[in-house]
Design a binder for these strands. Structure first.
Lengths: 378, 378
DNA sequence: TTGTAAGCGTTATCAG
DNA sequence: CTGATAACGCTTACAA
């Protein structure tokens, strides 16, 4: 009898090693299956399946009876069972290095938005500092997702990525594509960095510093290349460059200030590899009594929301993280059209956002006038 | 033959109605199953299962053979199949009204952090403006999650919530518990609002306005109650109160300013139901040339990161959204100990954060001196 | 149009 | 300690 089966099922021990969820407050839930609906409506389970999925012609009358029974019993189909037979999950996995900061949350927002449109569920897993953790996460998603969106900006993850790619359709975000066929989306880091640097150099700065991001980080390295490219272009009166170490955190920006604050030949402009560091820097400068932009020019990268609120507001490069997530899902869902093998790398445009943190180097008291939020798009 | 089976499986059509994921770039993935491992190591699938899960005594030699075969074949167990037999998913679903803004992203961060510790995957679904959408999302999670964390602050969702609760262990966030047994976590909204209001009233303000949150929103209503409670307590020289409508967005804060800016009897202090609105308000005031805090006192709620960067920095109430997410997972995972029926509602403490946006009403030019970030904890 | 039955990849219950 | 084998809930040929 069905009743027996159910009781039996409920008494089955669960894997002991892992913590079990509290079921105390959950009313003994009625697990209705497709069988129950079949019995109640006097048809076979196959027919119920057909009705539920609208997957084949079914007599209108039968159809109605099935629907009635289904809603009467409040039948909710079991996703795992469906997946097992169809091998489709209608879910995508998202592997991120962390969840802190606006950049990541915007990426997720974009993913969520697109996933909703594509009727895809999203499984999130973050804090993959090491590639092993990433691999384990991917592994645990076997049979639970149809594809993966992975952000693995650190160098050295390529063999892991290849292994994962051999088992899931994958879209890479801000990562070095490990193989030729890889789908990947990144931001026009080089171009953005080049643009801010050009802007600042045009103001006349010739003693600059670059506040680098984490070593090995793909975005950070590309941005560095962009700054350098702009610097190389100044033939006459070649600029002096100095490198400061950072790790994308606000604290590291603050800390970096110590490297030059005491000195007399300090740079007149600093390119930070992201906004958080630039903001940390701004804080340290204010504390040290160095006026921005009069005595020091500072630029960031990302254009996070805070950047327009700090004072002085930050000149930076606008990155549409939300769009990146959005596109990743679309690409993964194969909706962007049949993707040609050679065209599966997307570089998202960025735009220079000029605010108040930049001035001319010698300008004692007269910062270059700039409009509040002028934007120059790529 | 195995080969035949596989080919067969691959050729099976998938449900046509929904968009399918691009599988183009994914190398024809080798779907290794427990059977393959069994064959390769010359044991039964039962034994392989035992080894993989370490669920029963197995001869050391056999064990080794199985592991060797498993890693040789790079076997990744299928989650859906596991779920089907064990009826455990090791995943929790998260239903949120939206994903925009720092508050939500912090909640998710907390959830992610705790989930990692509990070895739980998280399935996120947001943008549930209507209760129907929420129900559909919950439905689609049947068989895919062991429990649900739901944030449904709007009034009128209780019958939906009850239906969901009857099928999943559920923890509610910032929501009106629909039934007595419900587990729920919320923030000490009333207390926090009461505290800021007390602080401002102590400064001498007697003509105040309350910038409300979205109608029907639980947090918003509780905060309103808190403000009112503080106002009621002023016996001598009862304060004049005025209500402004908002919806938690920065824009609605900006818009609200129009309601009183032209007037001569405008309030001297405004309690905004959240930080975003307060910041919008600050923007509008600055634009209108009204000095804060000299001519107008403004307070917020939530203490989002931006609040310390706007100028003047915002006096607000610190809410630990991350902690809320963290606790929700722990509660759901039943790790907070055996939860007594009567003790399943948690109210998280908040703390008053005094910054520069508050002054005395008459103070023309002499704002009440306050330390940069003094915090008074609950 | 409908029913029967064979899987899907695991785990769990029995006997050996 | 190990192997058959019956579930788990659903989809989908294949028959009727």
């Amino acid at each position: 009898m069905t009743m027996c089966k159910r009781l039996h099922a409920r008494l089955q021990p669960v894997t002991s090693e892992s913590p079990s969820l509290a079921t105390g407050s959950c009313q003994e839930s009625i697990v209705t299956t497709i069988r129950d609906v079949a019995r109640a409506s006097g048809v076979s389970i196959a027919t119920v399946s057909r009705v539920i999925n609208d997957s084949a012609r079914v007599n209108d009358d039968t159809r109605r009876r099935v629907w009635d029974a289904a809603s009467e019993l409040d039948f909710w189909p079991n996703g795992a069972a469906r997946t097992l037979t169809t091998s489709r999950t209608h879910a995508i996995g998202v592997l991120l290095p962390e969840l802190h900061g606006e950049f990541f949350s915007e990426v997720i927002r974009g993913i969520d938005r697109a996933a909703r449109l594509e009727k895809l569920q999203i499984l999130i897993s973050s804090s993959h500092a090491d590639t092993d953790g990433m691999l384990a996460a991917a592994r645990s998603m076997r049979g639970r997702v149809d594809g993966l969106i992975i952000m693995a900006p650190e160098r050295g993850s390529s063999s892991t990525l290849e292994q994962i790619q051999s088992r899931f359709p994958t879209v890479l975000l801000s990562s070095r594509p490990p193989a030729h066929g890889s789908h990947s989306i990144s931001v026009a880091n080089l171009d953005g960095a080049y643009q801010v640097a050009r802007h600042v150099l045009a103001l006349g700065h010739r003693r600059v510093a670059i506040l680098k991001g984490p070593p090995g980080n793909y975005d950070a390295e590309e941005r560095l290349r962009g700054y350098r490219k702009a610097l190389r272009e100044i033939r006459s009166q070649e600029p002096t460059v100095e490198y400061l170490n950072g790790n994308f955190s606000e604290e590291s920006g603050e800390a970096a200030a110590a490297d030059f604050l005491g000195r007399k030949d300090r740079p007149t402009a600093i390119f930070a590899a992201n906004d958080y560091m630039a903001i940390g820097l701004l804080g340290a400068l204010r504390e040290a009594g160095v006026r921005v932009p009069e005595e020091m020019t500072v630029t960031g990268f990302d254009d996070i929301v805070i950047s327009q609120y700090v004072s002085p507001s930050l000149t930076t490069v606008r990155v549409d993280a939300c769009d990146m997530g959005d596109r990743a899902v679309r690409l993964l869902a194969g909706l962007t059209g049949p993707v040609a093998r050679s065209m599966n790398s997307i570089t998202l445009p960025v735009s220079l956002v000029i605010r108040d943190s930049c001035g001319s180097p010698a300008s004692t008291g007269r910062p270059t006038p700039t409009r509040k939020t002028e934007r120059r798009s790529t």
